[in-house]
Structures are given as C-alpha cells and as structure tokens.
C-alpha cells in the first residue's frame, strides 16, 4: 500500500512517504491525539471497568468478573429477573418504533416541500430547520404542559372517551413516543427531502405510461430513488433514539426505563460504575456493529452517511 502513495504527484507537489507522514503528524496529529486521549482510551476504560467489581463506597476494584454482564442478561441477586432484558427490548422497540413513525411522517412532508413552488419551498424548509436547531430539552419538556390533565389536548382525548377526565397523558409510553417523533422528525425530513429533490420523474411517467397504477409507480419507480435519503434519515434517528435518556426521563415514568436511563441510574444515584459500564459498553457495541453492518451491506448500494 505504501508504495502507491510514494512519489505520486498530488495537488501539484510530490512528497516522499516521510514527507507525507510529517505533514500528517503536523495536521491530523493533534486532533488524533486529542480524540484518542479524551475519548477512545476512556471508551476502552469503560470496557475494562465493566469487568471489575463495585467497591464498598462506589468506585470499582478487583477481582475481575463477568457478573455485570450476567446480571444484565437477567441473572441478578435474587434469581432470574427479566428487568434488564426488558429494558434492552424496550429500547430497541422504542428506537425502531420512533424511526418507523418518523419515516411515515417524513415521507408526505418531504414530497410536500419538494412540490411547492420556489419561494414557498425555502420557507417550508426553513420551518423544518428551526425546530431542528432549537434545544431538544425545551421542545421535550413543553409536552409536559401539552399533555397535562388541564390541557386542551388531554380534555379533547377525555371527551372522546379514551381516558378518564382529569387524568394526565404523561408520564406514559405514549408521551415518550410523541416527544421522540416530534424531536426527531426534522432529522429524517432533511436528508429525505434532498433525495426527493433529485428524483427523476421521467421514470415515474414511463412507469405509468406502461400501465402501472399509482401504488406500483410509488413502490417501484419512486421509492427506490429516495432510498439513500430514507436510510440515512432512519440511521440519524435510530442511533440517538435508542440511547435517549432525556426524553424518557421527562415524559416517561418508572415503568418506562430505557438503556440511557439505566446507564444514568448506575453512574448517578446507584453508584455502580462497573454495571453502568457494562450497559454502556454493550450499547456502544450494538450501535457500532449495526453501523458496520450497514456500511458493509447496504452502504455499497446506498449513498454515504458520513
């Protein structure tokens, strides 16, 4: 590999392998060192701590153990308990559910924006960008007001008879989903919209000229063209959604603990860092493995995400 880069003229100059290395060290070097020291090594550290035992007053100490992982898989102090396997499953369902709902909402919205005439298109896009850049914490806690027992929404739902009058809609799994979809919708609309803008409509016309009905035109002539944007958007939603801790914390109750809350719990009030590290390390493993899988199999066809 090294030979290919030696003596090659790039950007008008010829550099030896040593020259390339020196320039890399001067430009990329400081950042690589920074990220390695302050993030990559700490992540390895989390991996190590996850195999240690919790100390008397918090902290961690020897001996090495697999206990944190078996506890996570369900074998706790009091026999087999489904608590943590349920948390994993709930987080995956929440992430996938949020991504699916966001996708269903983003499809009409992206086509709507793309179909608007020039000036209104910019306005409609800016209106998606504003929530995108607005603090997530603020947009999340606002749902506590919107779903409180005395709000119009809650009273309307009670009037229809879905809930008892005077009961709040939060904390609940429903409130978490509302908050999640509301917060992450812009993340998927933006990449999807840029794919919709690039659609070659003559393919759709050809399909309908050849006798395909509206449904088939959408499935076979339009959807494949927006796949790169859709996949990128789903990944942008799925990863942060699975690790979310603020939204479930503010809109869910004790029954709706997610992976993120479990990590926060162990590093915060419970002071069981080794166990918290095991959860964090597994969570990171799942994310990196799914990204690698995507890059390996789907990424070859679809566009790049990063």
């Amino acid at each position: 590999m090294a030979n290919r880069h030696q003596g090659e003229v790039r950007f008008g100059e010829q550099l030896s392998a040593r020259g390339q290395l020196l320039r890399s060290a001067l430009t990329s070097g400081p950042s690589i060192l920074w990220v390695t020291v302050f993030l990559l090594l700490p992540l390895v550290g989390v991996g190590v701590i996850s195999f240690l035992t919790r100390g008397e007053a918090g902290g961690y100490e020897l001996p090495l153990t697999f206990g944190n992982y078996t506890r996570f898989a369900g074998w706790g102090f009091f026999g087999y308990d489904l608590l943590y396997p349920q948390i994993i499953l709930r987080s995956i369902v929440l992430g996938a559910g949020t991504a699916l709902l966001c996708m269903l909402a983003a499809l009409p919205l992206a086509f709507f924006i793309a179909a608007l005439p020039g000036r209104y298109k910019n306005l409609a896009l800016t209106l998606v960008l504003i929530p995108f850049w607005t603090n997530l914490l603020i947009r999340t806690y606002a749902w506590q007001i919107l779903l409180a027992p005395e709000s119009w929404i809650t009273r309307a739902v009670a009037l229809v008879g879905l809930i008892e009058p005077g009961t709040p809609l939060y904390p609940s799994a429903f409130a978490i989903y509302i908050g999640m979809v509301c917060d992450y919708l812009p993340f998927i609309v933006l990449p999807l919209y840029s794919s919709v803008e690039k659609i070659d409509w003559s393919i759709a016309e050809a399909a309908s000229d050849l006798g395909a009905d509206g449904k088939r035109v959408f499935w076979h002539a339009i959807l494949p063209q927006v796949m790169p944007g859709l996949v990128a958007g789903v990944i942008l939603v799925l990863i942060p959604a699975m690790g979310q801790f603020v939204i479930p914390d503010l809109l869910g109750g004790a029954k709706t603990v997610m992976l993120g809350n479990a990590i926060q719990q162990q590093f915060g009030p419970s002071r069981d860092w080794p166990f918290g590290s095991a959860i964090a390390f597994l969570g990171m493993g799942v994310v990196l493995a799914s990204l690698w899988f995507y890059a390996r199999y789907a990424g070859e066809k679809g566009g790049e995400i990063i």
């Binding site: 090294a2 880069h5 790039r10 950007f11 550099l15 392998a17 390339q20 290395l21 320039r23 890399s24 060290a25 430009t27 990329s28 950042s31 690589i32 990220v35 390695t36 302050f38 993030l39 990559l40 700490p42 992540l43 550290g45 989390v46 990863i239 942060p240 699975m242 690790g243 979310q244 801790f245 993120g260 990590i263 926060q264 590093f267 918290g276 590290s277 964090a280 969570g283 990171m284 994310v287 990196l288 990204l291 990063i306």
Partner: peptide, 29 residues
C-alpha cells in the same frame, strides 16, 4: 491531503464521537 500508515482505521475512529450515543460518550469521559 496526506497519507500515513493506518490512515483508514484512524479516519474511521475519528468519527466515533458522531455515531455513539451521547450518554455512552458522557460516562466514558
């Protein structure tokens, strides 16, 4: 612009902060 041994691996590793969940990064730090 420049090449160095292990560049491919390192340029992937540099993107880890973009893709891992905030909370994992936070507790690692």
């Amino acid at each position: 612009r420049y090449w160095f041994p292990g560049k491919k691996l390192f340029s992937l590793l540099m993107y880890i902060p973009v893709v891992i969940p905030d909370i994992v990064m936070a507790v690692a730090m």
